[in-house]
Design a protein around this nucleic acid. Structure first.
Lengths: 324, 324
DNA sequence: ATGAAAGCGCTAACAA
DNA sequence: TTGTTAGCGCTTTCAT
């Protein structure tokens, strides 16, 4: 027992004394309707508080007015920031956004793209891990990948190499000669890019770089690896993300060491908490909001691969090397 | 130039050698179609990877398969957690979720409810601030309010009174006699509920309670108010949320005071960072995920007002009063 | 148990 | 410039 829509284009047409098609034109191609008629239609629309049914419109035009954004975990401030930018930009373009949180589960991405293909004009997929090969080819809808280059598809990449070079340079100038790098998850494009950047910059700056593997890119998992940082004798640490950097600081201070007194720490992302902890975190800030806005814009353009770059933000978790 | 949908119910019908109506039945009311026919249809569906067009279906049934969730700021971990629960629960019910981030802007709520009424089966509105009176009455779609009771509408409320009583009791037993309460935003239901709870519990426990007003419920704004905490001589602080509690800790330690050595601090929400800071934050944890799941379920029920309760989580930002 | 036909609300050819 | 008509993909009476 469905209730019919309250006010349709026919009601507006009747009230304005014109045909439904004229109402449609007045709304979509106003320049093709006489000013006077248009005014009558517009008034009727206002009086009846008419809102066009997007589903009906989409059925014939193929344009649904929706886009989908697929993220691994909306609870992560990094992704939340991106989604926020996407939503804002989309709204300005009169698009609605469907959110999918995959819970880091790649299969869920495929399912979502499959089932939502009819309902959206495009997908923005943030998929740190390797994507299902099927993903790109499902449906005729454009897919923009964030931080993941995919052959034949558009993507926006957040490059950190220059900022990493700055960070390493910064540490070198503070007298550090040995650096530990805590890597990100295997298969993550960002993890690869950052690792390469650290290696290369370390070589250029003449620093000794020790790479440490962490089970998960989380605060807790990082705690476990802190003893190994101490063992390897590095006086500075770069961590794959801010949560991990917090873990390093927490673990170190828990052992009676001081940051940046004994060890300097650098993160990636610049999450809000970076300014709230003591010491405030030196980190590489990523233009996530720009990336989100850009992704929405790219939905209606030729597929390209665009790059944005992060930058080093100096705060108080880095300082001169200690000579003990 | 629209591209027609690749595979429609007609394609399936043709392949299965039946009428489109039969395919529709096989999919929606399988018991009304012969087992053998059903099997043929199901196979055709699989072979063609047919996915029904929800817009077309919704046009006739009135059920769009979408719900909308409206939050003030997805970037806030508190709301992100709720949205995540909503999305998960919705997916299990084969619903898609449209996300709206109002940026704390009440007008945006009204706009969203207006324009999306056709596209969704219901709204979940998280609106700490007072809602536009118009909001509830727009459209025939159900609206579930989170942390905001609205006459004639369903809501799910997160009660903290019992947990607050526990917290105050806890502080009292640690020897505290004077307590500062940092309130939340005016007009927020949660702010009112928490303030009343603190007042009442303070009275019951025989504590002196000083209420302090903070311009915004943020880390930065809280920093400004820290001197007044020190002035009023309270040995314990309860803050409206965890960000503010972090601000108190940061401001206090910045002045050379220690937490919990000199002052004990309690927050609300139990955001992930609560366990990552030093000292780990004693806070009142809210069942946000449950609230989100419940809200989705309530969408298809009679409007009621359900209450969930938070609970005190003891960590290390509270301790015995110092006698100096 | 299945088919035929109408129609949800809207847009887009084509006429007038 | 406006009206007429057809039809997007699907469900749902009503027949059979």
């Amino acid at each position: 027992m469905r209730t019919r829509q309250r006010v349709t284009i026919l009601d507006v047409a009747e009230r304005a004394g014109v045909h439904a098609a004229t109402v449609s034109r007045a709304l979509n191609v106003p320049e093709k309707v006489a000013p006077e008629t248009r005014a009558r239609v517009e008034q009727a629309v206002r009086e009846l508080a008419f809102v066009p049914n997007r589903a009906a419109r989409g059925l014939i035009t193929g344009r649904t007015g929706n886009i989908a954004v697929i993220v691994p975990d909306i609870t992560n401030p990094h992704f939340a920031k991106l989604v926020r930018a996407v939503e804002r930009t989309a709204r300005d373009a009169e698009l609605q956004v469907l959110l999918v949180d995959t819970g880091e589960h790649p299969d869920e991405e495929v399912r979502a793209v499959r089932t939502m293909a009819h309902d959206v004009e495009g997908f923005i997929v943030v998929s740190p891990r390797r994507v299902h090969r099927e993903l790109g080819s499902v449906g005729s809808r454009p897919v923009i990948f964030v931080n993941r280059p995919v052959r034949g598809h558009a993507s926006v990449l957040l490059r950190t190499a220059p900022a990493v070079a700055d960070a390493v340079q910064h540490l070198e100038s503070l007298g550090h000669r040995s650096l530990a790098y805590l890597g990100g998850p295997r298969g993550s494009w960002a993890a690869g890019e950052r690792r390469n950047a650290v290696r290369r910059s370390g070589r250029v700056a003449g620093l000794h770089v020790v790479e440490l593997v962490v089970a998960e890119p989380t605060f807790e998992a990082t705690l476990d690896v802190v003893p190994r940082i101490v063992d390897c004798g590095a006086s500075a640490v770069i961590a794959f993300n801010d949560q991990m950097a917090f873990g390093v600081i927490s673990g170190l201070t828990g052992q009676g060491m001081s940051v940046p007194g004994d060890v300097s720490v650098v993160g990636f992302d610049d999450v809000p908490m970076a300014t709230m902890v003591a010491p405030a975190l030196t980190t590489i800030s990523l233009p996530v909001a720009e990336a989100g806005a850009l992704a929405v814009a790219m939905l209606s353009e030729q597929p390209t691969c665009t790059e944005l770059r992060g930058e080093l933000v100096l705060r108080h978790s880095t300082g001169p090397v200690s000579h003990r």
